[in-house]
Structures are given as C-alpha cells and as structure tokens.
Nucleic acid binder design. Structure first.
Length: 258
DNA sequence: ATGCCGTGGAAACCACGA
C-alpha cells in the first residue's frame, strides 16, 4: 500500500500536474495540502475520472487539505484538529482507508517570527501533539502525513546556517517535532534513509531545484503498528521538474500488505 | 540578506507562501 503526501500549491492551477502524477505513480492514498480552493471548486470529477475517491476540507484562497484513495472513498473520521475554537484555517482532515488511519495535515508556516503567525504555529503544533497522543496507541496502522513546515535537523536543509532564525527551523519548532517522536512516532522517510540527503521542497527561484538547495519539511509519522509494516519510501523528484509544477515534490511510503 | 517565483482574488495590486 503506497501512501503519498503532496503540497500541490493550488489544486486547480495544478490539476494537470496532479493528474499526471497520479497516472504515473498510482498511489493508493494521496494526502494533498494547500488546495487554495473553496469546497465547491474542488475538482471532484477530474479526480474521480482518474480513479480516485476523495474527501476534502477547503477554504477560499488559502490552506486546504484532501485525502484521495484509489478505487475507493476514504471514510472520514475527523475534520479539523480538536480544540480549534475560532480557528478558521483548513489544515487537518483524517480518514480510514483499507484499515489504515490517515491524518493529512498542513502545519502553519509561522513566519515572520516573532509575531502572531509564529504564536499560531506553536499553538497549532500543540494541538497536533495532543491529538497525536491519542492516536499513537491505536491498534491499527496510523499515519500522520503532510507538510509539517518543520526542518527536523541540520541534515534536512541544504545550508542550516541560513535558516537558524526561520520559523521552520528554530528550536521551539524542532522541539515540537522531537516531542512527537518522543510519543513513539517514527519519521518514516528518515527511517528508510538514515544517511541520505532527502528534500521535499525547493524554492521556485534562484534555481533552487537545479542546485538541490532544498528542505525536508513533508513527513510521515508512523505509529508502532504502522512502523512494523514500513517497507520503502521515496520522493518523486521528477514531478518537481514538470512545467507549472508545485514548489514541493510528492513524497511517499510503502506499507507491506497483511 | 533577500519572496528574485508563483497562486488566488480582487482589481490591474496585494496577501501569502518557506
């Protein structure tokens, strides 16, 4: 079972690239972020024609998350993290697909720091941690996949010194990721590639992709049941080279079938 | 050191992203 995550940066503008990627790589589940689309403009028909059922949580212009499942409809279990009174951002949706519980998340960027956007990021990550604490012990595979907007370590950024004060890399934010790991979650991509440079995002400008000046900010966290089934992982770098592409590349993990 | 590019929405610029 292949589970992918892809920050599409606008699902309607990105539709040709998204459909090409689905056609070529055929993930069983695809977690999408940054739809930048209100619910009524989600391209349900085009995605259905491509062979995918979908659930989504959009909003006008910003944010937005969706879960796609090949040849079936995800069984939605939650929309929005708990404790979100007054939070208008569409950043979390969760579903069961073939016995695997999938949380699809788009964490806040948090820049500029300090400021209200950074405070919101830390508060949101605290809510994620609280929800994750309740999922870690579920007796089924659980995957928390998405754009965490966190560079976990020096090894996950092309030039750490340039990012020291950035909201993706400051100690408080890296600690939030480490706290999740302390709960018992496993960083799936790093588990498969302990010693390789893996990036999932490259800026559009300064020829970042050509220079491989990237960041690893899209992650899969696996609970212990899911970890036992983890077999392979990867990043679809070819998709990052297509015309009109996102600044993120899709990332994926493979779980052994039972 | 930097939104230099790109998207969406409103309005021919602005907010926002990482």
């Amino acid at each position: 079972m292949r589970i992918a995550t892809y920050n599409v940066n606008g699902i309607n503008g990105r539709l040709p690239v998204l459909l090409e990627w689905l056609r070529q790589t055929k993930p069983d589940v695809a977690c999408l972020q940054e739809l930048k689309s209100p619910d009524e403009k989600f391209p349900e028909r085009a995605i259905g024609d491509a062979g995918y059922g979908a659930i989504w949580l959009g909003q006008k212009s910003w944010n937005g998350v969706a879960i796609l499942a090949r040849e079936c409809k995800p069984e939605e279990t939650r929309r929005g993290l708990p404790g979100g009174t007054g939070d208008t951002h569409s950043r979390y949706i969760e579903a069961a697909v073939n016995g695997v519980l999938i949380g699809c998340l788009y964490a806040p960027n948090g820049n500029p720091r300090p400021g209200p956007k950074f405070d919101y990021k830390l508060a949101w990550l605290n809510r994620l941690k609280a929800h994750a604490a309740g999922l870690i012990g579920v007796h089924a595979p659980v995957i928390l996949a998405g754009d965490y907007n966190i560079i976990p370590t020096d090894f996950d950024v092309y030039k750490p010194e340039r990012w020291i004060k950035d909201a993706l890399f400051v100690p408080e934010v890296r600690k939030a990721f480490a706290d999740l790991i302390s709960q018992g979650w496993v960083d799936g991509i790093r588990k498969i590639y302990p010693d390789e440079r893996i990036y999932t995002f490259w800026d559009y400008f300064r020829r970042s992709f050509e220079r491989d000046a990237g960041l690893r900010i899209d992650h899969f966290l696996l609970n212990p049941v899911a970890r036992k089934r983890l077999s392979t992982a990867g990043v679809d770098r070819a998709t990052r080279q297509l015309a009109k592409t996102s600044d993120h590349a899709p990332a994926w993990i493979e779980l052994l079938d039972l």
